[in-house]
């Protein structure tokens, strides 16, 4: 009986095989088109991601033919490594500060830039220029602006206001805020442009209706603009947090992680372990730890905020 069943099923299934083949051949062209991109992704993204997990289970210095398998040892070390944990704390500080200050600021400028005025495109360009400037080059310029003596432009300016010269990047308390400021400056343009797109996609009828109802400008902003902009805000928040947790170039060029390790971030730590100390396994474990943190934060944002995002369809 059982054998008969199976034969029946095989017989029943038989005609589907040519059909599947046919479908494959129908789609062959499409597969061919995505093949180059898929190959590039597989070789340069997927494989390294999987390989990094394998490496995270090893003690290996990149060139040693001997790779010691340590299981989850690298992950266990992470949890007791005060330097890594402080990097995680610094990164969280950086991310929260840069997004919490950067996003509202971008919104304010987007609203200001969202009107017709002569030379408006010039202003918009001016805000976008920092974003397309090489971050490394910009960091070098900011390094001069933050010069700790009275020669520094910032110190010169606050000197005019009667404030004594600050140590900026050399002061353990001021260094991270100084780095955050540069990050906001450089990312503002991108956020503004996306906010502008969001603002311009809000239909004029809502504003007209609000006006007829006698809403003042603040009420229009609060009860029309803000809710209808929430998908954009949500998108920028998620993308902004993910980007902020990967911060690396600014501390590398501005402070080298100092002073007292106050601007030492997770990716900086990963880079240092991997490409300065050549502890590839430990670096890979840090990459996966960072992925886990970003994943959890993104999920939390989703859980908490999805209900509050107003999609106007």
């Amino acid at each position: 009986m059982a054998a008969q069943d199976r034969t029946d099923r095989v017989l029943q299934g038989a005609p589907s095989r040519p059909r599947r083949l046919r479908r494959l051949s129908e789609n062959a062209e499409a597969y061919l088109f995505i093949l180059p991109a898929a190959l590039v992704l597989a070789v340069f993204n997927l494989f390294p991601i999987l390989y990094a997990f394998f490496v995270s289970l090893l003690r290996w210095n990149l060139i040693d033919p001997v790779r010691t398998f340590v299981g989850l040892g690298n992950y266990a070390e992470l949890l007791q490594d005060p330097r890594f944990l402080s990097a995680l704390a610094n990164t969280t500080y950086f991310s929260v500060a840069s997004v919490a200050v950067g996003l509202p600021l971008a919104l304010v400028f987007a609203v200001l830039l969202n009107r017709t005025l002569t030379g408006m495109s010039w202003y918009r360009t001016a805000f976008f220029v920092p974003y397309v400037t090489s971050l490394a080059a910009a960091a070098m310029v900011w390094h001069w602006l933050y010069h700790p003596d009275q020669f520094g432009l910032l110190n010169y300016l606050i000197g005019k206001l009667g404030v004594s010269p600050q140590r900026w990047l050399l002061d353990p308390g001021q260094a991270m805020p100084a780095v955050v400021a540069v990050a906001i400056w450089s990312g503002l343009g991108r956020d503004i442009v996306i906010f502008l797109a969001g603002l311009q996609s809000i239909t004029a009828e809502y504003y007209e209706a609000a006006q007829i109802d006698g809403a003042n400008r603040w009420q229009v902003f609060r009860y029309v603009t803000l809710p209808l902009l929430s998908p954009t805000t949500y998108f920028l928040l998620v993308i902004g947090m993910i980007g902020a947790f990967k911060v690396f170039v600014l501390p590398l060029f501005l402070t080298q992680g100092g002073p007292l390790g106050r601007t030492f971030t997770v990716v900086y730590s990963l880079y240092q372990q991997g490409f300065q100390y050549f502890r590839m396994g430990y670096a890979a474990a840090q990459a996966y730890a960072l992925f886990a943190v970003i994943f959890i934060i993104t999920m939390l944002q989703r859980r908490i905020l999805t209900g509050r995002v107003h999609y106007d369809t």
């Binding site: 210095n61 100092g258 002073p259 007292l260 300065q276 100390y277 050549f278």
Partner: peptide, 22 residues
């Protein structure tokens, strides 16, 4: 020793912490 770079950086941190009075 290959590990010296990391040891050296660790000492950097210690020297800094002492100089800043931490």
């Amino acid at each position: 020793v290959a590990e010296w770079q990391e040891i050296r950086d660790t000492v950097d941190g210690a020297v800094e912490a002492a100089l800043f009075g931490k």
